[in-house]
Design a binder for these strands. Structure first.
Lengths: 129, 129
DNA sequence: TTGGGTGCAAATCTTTTGCAGGTGT
DNA sequence: ACACCTGCAAAAGATTTGCACCCAA
């Protein structure tokens, strides 16, 4: 495995993600990084997002129909996706780890993790109806 | 909303999905449809998969990293994705509907559904290690 | 007859990758 | 110096869309 070397770009990307409560796509990260590094490339953003999520410093939220979203928060939590506006929100829940393990029946594989997403209307979209 | 009109292609696509226990991608559906309609187009397959999932006759499983998968079974059930071979399996679980609703805290939006996925090694990939 | 459905091909969107030069250690 | 990292641009993969023709109702 390759040795990790410091890079300003990577540091900034990680910092940026940790300050955001929404869950930006690669493109949004790119637009924001351009404010700091005017000629950073989209490829670099993708490479670093992918690298950071590989080493577990950020979380990649795969496709809700469009582009992937990235989450600077790696402690386990669930997400809510608004079916109207597409917004991705964090959700507070009881701890579900034990629940999850116990509820699976008749499976001889090995479960190492899970991903739970809720769908519906976010507070704002409910109001607008 | 447009009136739905019969189409042989759509019927076949739905039938095909219902006979499959795995969760084929659009491309796999396309390859199999070509056996029946030698010059069916990929666009038609995508249009119908999208239409069928809009009206709730099939289920679209968005991106596990690659192409979307489609499930002819619409009764609620969880999925397992093998992190080694990428296979998607159905999983038997306790009924989780009530569990899910109860576990969410402090959320003022409206939850209408959820999607639960487990990750790990499938039985076959465990053996090969 | 009319509006949805189809095949075909081009376009779009997202993400990955090859390459030559730059930079951290 | 060596290996990783970057910008750039091209490529790749998945899905959507415009168009002219076809077919179910």
């Amino acid at each position: 495995m390759a040795t990790l070397k410091y890079s300003r770009q990577r540091e900034s990307i990680k910092e940026f993600l940790m300050t955001r409560k929404d869950h930006p796509t690669a493109d949004v990260v790119y637009e924001n990084m351009k404010k700091i590094y005017s000629n950073i490339s989209l490829g670099t953003v993708y490479r670093n997002l992918s690298l950071l999520s590989d080493i577990g410093e950020i979380q990649k939220l795969s496709s809700f129909g469009g582009a992937d979203h990235f989450d600077g928060c790696v402690t386990p939590h669930c997400h809510f996706i608004c079916t109207d506006c597409g917004q991705v929100l964090d959700l507070e829940t009881d701890d579900m780890n034990r629940l999850m393990e116990k509820s699976v029946k008749n499976f001889s594989g090995k479960i190492t993790g899970y991903d739970l997403r809720f769908f519906g209307l976010c507070p704002r979209c409910i109001t607008h109806r």
